Amino acid sequence: RLRTTITPEQLEILYQKYLLDSNPTRKMLDHIAHEVGLKKRVVQVWFQNTRARERK
C-alpha cells in the first residue's frame, strides 16, 4: 500500500484543527476529512500520530 502524501496546505488545516481539539469526535473527523480532501481513516491516524508525538 502506498503512503498518503499530505500537502502543506492540508497539514496547515490539520494543525489548526488539532489546536482546537486534539481528540475529535467521529463527526468532526468526517468534517475535517471532507474539508482537507483525505479519507477519514488517514485523518484519524494523523491525529493519533500527532498525539503520540506530543507525548514524547
Rank of each mutant, 00 (worst) to 15 (best):
K40P: 14
V45T: 07
L11T: 09
N23V: 05
Q16M: 14
L11I: 07
V45G: 07
I6P: 08
Q10K: 04
I32W: 09
L19Q: 07
R51P: 01
F47M: 04
G37E: 10
E54A: 04
N49E: 15
W46D: 01
E9N: 07
V42W: 10
L29G: 02
R51A: 13
L19A: 10
R41F: 08
L29M: 12
T7K: 05
Q48F: 01
L20V: 11
W46P: 01
N23F: 13
M28C: 03
T7C: 07
Q10R: 02
R55V: 14
L29D: 01
T7I: 05
I32P: 00
L20A: 07
N23E: 10
T50Q: 14
G37P: 03
E35R: 02
R53Y: 06
K27D: 14
D30N: 06
E35W: 04
L38H: 02
D21R: 01
H34F: 09
R53T: 12
Q10A: 07
L20C: 11
N23G: 06
R26M: 14
V43I: 09
D30T: 06
T7A: 12
K40E: 15
F47P: 00
N49K: 11
L19W: 05
P24H: 02
R26E: 15
T4Q: 11
L14S: 02
R53D: 14
I13C: 10
R1K: 11
L14G: 00
A52N: 12
A52V: 05
E9L: 06
D30V: 07
E35N: 00
V36F: 03
L20M: 12
S22V: 05
L19F: 05
K17S: 09
L38Q: 02
E35T: 12
K56T: 11
E54W: 04
E35Q: 11
N49G: 07
T50D: 02
V36R: 01
E12W: 02
H34Q: 11
K39C: 13
T4G: 11
L20P: 00
E54L: 08
I6M: 12
Q48Y: 09
I6N: 02
R41G: 15
Y15K: 12
Q10E: 04
K39G: 13
N49W: 02
M28I: 03
A33W: 02
K39M: 13
R3I: 13
N49V: 07
